[in-house]
Amino acid sequence: MSIDDNASIDDDASIVDDARSGSGQRGRGLRVEGLEVAYGGVPAVRGIDLEVKAGEAVGLIGPNGAGKSSTLLGIMGAVARSGRVLVKGEDLAGFPPEKVVRRGVALVPEGRHVFAELSVADNLRLGAVARRDRTGYSEAMEHVLTLFPMLRDFGHRQAGLLSGGQQQQLAIGRALMSDPDILLLDEPSLGLSPTAVDTVFEALDVIRAAGKAVLVVEQRAEFTIAFCDRTFVLHDGEITLTLSPEDAEKVDVLTKAYFG
């Protein structure tokens, strides 16, 4: 399904390999080295290293104010940052968000932030602004509507009138419209009912299986650790722990993750 208009043909061949082996700078994943974010001199993220390979989901958990959102915003270039953000071997340092999106990274922001006054269809259309091609657009739209069939029925409805769970689906759909290789999600389960959370994470599973790199920030530790291939625990702007899915059941690990 993935339409990559930017990659040249020989790149495409190697991408599959890269995705499998997951190695190398030229992979379609994301690599972050020494990322730092500060607000008015006060550090929020203090030198984070992490890697998300294609076809992999990585979790980022931690208490309130740990710097999770700041990390994602730093990757997107939405806040001042230092350190390296590598995508396909290119360092995105100093790129504004609109350029980062054009390099194949998309963010589903905390609190969804759909354009409430615009229709569902317009929201999805806006997600595709960063696309350079015209051909991939309808395919991406079809893909999003297959993933979230609900959006098809509500195409003309104002986004602000959707329920929380529906808005979350729309926000993810909007991010997918740019056909990103790397999808960042900030607390996609925030304020959703259990069934809505299931819908969202089932979709994430499909997205991961389609070969995208997924980096998801979450509050629900147990759930996230189980879902993700790896989960980092963030504390005070630093990664203090790396967990694997097997850790999901260990209560002491969870407590440690939260109270450090």
Partner: peptide
């Protein structure tokens, strides 16, 4: 128009508009 839609989105929520990829 697409440009008009982008402007509307930016006027409603500039930060999100940039995150979506609308050129500021």
């Amino acid at each position: 128009t697409s440009m008009g839609l982008q402007l509307k989105a930016a006027a409603a929520d500039f930060r999100t508009a940039r995150l979506v990829g609308i050129p500021a």
